[in-house]
Nucleic acid binder design. Sequence first.
DNA 1: CTGTTAGCGCTTTCAA
DNA 2: TTGAAAGCGCTAACAG
Lengths: 339, 339
Amino acid sequence: MKNVTLKDVAKKAGVSPSTVSRVVSDDSRISERTKKKVLEVMKELGYYPNSIARSLANNKTNTIGVIMPYGSEDIFMNPFFQESLRGISLVASKNCYDILISTSRKNEDEIDILKCLIKGKKVDGLILTRSNENDESIKYLRENKVPFVLIGSCLEYDDIPSVDNDNKKASYELTSLLIKKGRKNIAFIGGELHSVVIKNRFEGYKKALSDNNLEFNENYFISDKFLEESGYKLTGELLKLKNIPDAIIVSDDLMSLGAMKKIKEEKYRVPQDIMLASFNNSFLAKYANPSITSIDINSLELGKIACKKLFNILKNKKNENSKEIVEYKIIERESTKLI
Amino acid sequence: MKNVTLKDVAKKAGVSPSTVSRVVSDDSRISERTKKKVLEVMKELGYYPNSIARSLANNKTNTIGVIMPYGSEDIFMNPFFQESLRGISLVASKNCYDILISTSRKNEDEIDILKCLIKGKKVDGLILTRSNENDESIKYLRENKVPFVLIGSCLEYDDIPSVDNDNKKASYELTSLLIKKGRKNIAFIGGELHSVVIKNRFEGYKKALSDNNLEFNENYFISDKFLEESGYKLTGELLKLKNIPDAIIVSDDLMSLGAMKKIKEEKYRVPQDIMLASFNNSFLAKYANPSITSIDINSLELGKIACKKLFNILKNKKNENSKEIVEYKIIERESTKLI
DNA sequence: CTGTTAGCGCTTTCAA
DNA sequence: TTGAAAGCGCTAACAG
């Protein structure tokens, strides 16, 4: 079962390889007659172009890479990732692109994966799904003029094509909501400390406090990984304080589920004793009991726009180095509503 | 910023291209001295091998394809997919393989995507995440001796490498549980009708009924897509019957959430009026209110094993055409417990 | 509109 | 242990 190559088609159709190549890539300057003929032979022989060879010849893979953050096993758990990947996938497939998911290997760091993908020419461009402070990956991609889009924000450079929510504002609004409800001891549970998204959300939280003449209590800011267990553990610490909070802002739904569990275990009531508000508005927040107030960040849209942006960069070759903002929405639910 | 090629390294190191190639692929028959020298130059020049060129030369991509079922936008929503992808990803990255997710494009059917991927040599092997009756994709892959593994079961052929749960038995057990609780009017809400998994679960359900001398009521078996809305809609139909069921088995958590919503809206109580039991045990089932009894199918393990199996096939070239069974577990929760 | 001719960057005999 | 040379299957000037 030898592979049918372009050459075979050419021979059988009585034309040159380049003609067949032109038919394959739908080149305009080719007569309808030969085109039809070649297409027939292609079908007859069951020919499919070898995409690897094509890629090598024209330096284009029709594949975009999506980079999982380090510790990818965890992030896969997070519905945010799933949703944005879905958005990316929707746009990619519409443009006949495939998606390559590269995950970190042990003993290698993210930057090495990037290099392999980029210098190894496995992908035409990349989408990063999150950013850290002083992100080495971003620095590398920028310096090497690699086509990429960031879902998130970059603090250091102003010319990174990216799409994000206004997380600071969202957090400010969420905190203000709790303050309006009369809460004064509001804690903040963050995810990984060096991630930009946490920084922004934390800033919004602090600003809301100070704008409302509430003092920031250092004990009320703790953080760990974006995991349910982390939420559980961190909430445990908050509840051990002499002055326990009357509201908690959690920077991710998955974590807030853990928080809720701990609060219930310790026999506090949500929202009466402790209000809970969260980010990302995955279905977790909707179906929790009580349901959890959460910021809908529109992950699907983030993914879609990121992918569209990448295609613009790839196609126009103009540097689409803009920051796009996707609207968020506060979805208020039982966890902050006193009936 | 020209790309550093193998040739450049060779020149600078004063050796031939083939020598560099050997160093890259860690060939044994090469002296430590030259090896060290070449490695130095590689680092100095920041050389990374062009994986496309490699693939073309040795007919190997180090990439496995994961095929999204048709209608991929939906399936992405389902935690089952996410979990098994995570399993696949874990194993793949350990073996230095990348994952290519190919999604269906409009006006093409799945089989054409397969052909592009396979004949186009974009991947070394494939993992299918579900099977249908008379599945054309499976037929094609089998006939063309493509290395692939199925997550699920195949009814037509007995030599398909696959990994699955014993869904019939699981469903039998779940139905029996409801019967033991005294329920006699048990309905079954399925997902897509032609999927093998639904067939198996439905069979288990029917067998349990007949083994317990309960008659199968045709009105009690309805199905649609694996979506929350479908669960909602179908449950609505059940609740319109003159003789409404006192228990419902739903073939997926996401659907059961929809079912639950409808039941509550119609002012029935779970579990008192209607018991609910479901499949897949995603966190949805755990956090629903009331929490939902569900079959834990261990999606993570399904993904891991599928990927391992694929690597065995790819490496040993022996036909690993076995069916592997992953254990399931009934997780009983509030939706079937009368206190 | 079509054919000829070089490669794309790497691997792999084969020979040394 | 190393090098020379052919070739993986396709594209892209260039020429006609």
